[in-house]
């Protein structure tokens, strides 16, 4: 799928969420959906399997998100599944998040952590990253047990990695 098409879908989703007045929440939920889609092979295989009827795949997405995400988020994901562009879901959502951050004059900061961050920690981390980048950041936290401990922050092209996983990898290489 071309980047133009991705941008078009992202803009459409963005405008719907904005019109609904739930942009912040939807953007956050979609971001988590995108990361889950990337990391869960079974989910990815199911939603991209063309042998399964589209309606059924939509139903799967709706059942997975039902009760856990807002209606708008669920409907937007269902919309992408229905359009047959589900393979591009992460790219569309990332573009949407970037657009939303840009709208708020913020830089997207993707954080990976082994455990969820408290609200206080998110606030202080956002402030610290804003201090580093010189721009306010739109924090997107992904709980990823594979990092074991610590955090890795990706802000634009900059990567700040202080995870236990990375340290272990470095230690393994040294050994």
């Amino acid at each position: 799928m071309s980047s133009v098409k991705v941008e078009a879908y992202a803009r459409a989703l963005f405008e719907i969420a904005q019109a609904e007045g739930t942009l912040d929440r939807v953007e956050d939920e979609l971001f988590r959906v995108a990361r889950a889609f990337e990391s869960n092979e079974q989910l990815r295989a199911t939603l991209t399997d063309n042998t399964i009827p589209t309606e059924r795949r939509q139903l799967v997405a709706e059942q997975l998100l039902g009760g856990k995400a807002s209606d708008t988020t669920t409907q937007l994901v269902s919309l992408v599944v229905n359009s047959g562009q589900v393979r591009e879901l992460p790219a569309i959502i990332d573009s949407l998040v970037k657009r939303a951050s840009s709208e708020k004059k913020q830089e997207v900061a993707e954080i990976r952590s082994a455990v969820a961050l408290s609200a206080d920690q998110e606030t202080r981390l956002a402030a610290a990253l804003a201090k580093v980048t010189g721009k306010p950041v739109n924090l997107k936290v992904v709980v990823d047990p594979s990092v074991l401990g610590g955090l890795v922050a990706v802000v634009g092209d900059e990567v700040i990695d202080d995870t236990v996983r990375t340290r272990l990898d470095q230690l393994k290489t040294r050994i």
Binding site: A114, A128, K131, G150, L151
Partner: peptide, 21 residues
């Protein structure tokens, strides 16, 4: 790696990033 240790690591990260500039 207990939850406390993980939390300490997060705090250490925030502190070190905040002290970077």
């Amino acid at each position: 790696l207990t939850d406390q240790t993980k939390n300490d690591l997060i705090e250490a990260f925030i502190t070190s990033v905040g002290a970077a500039r």
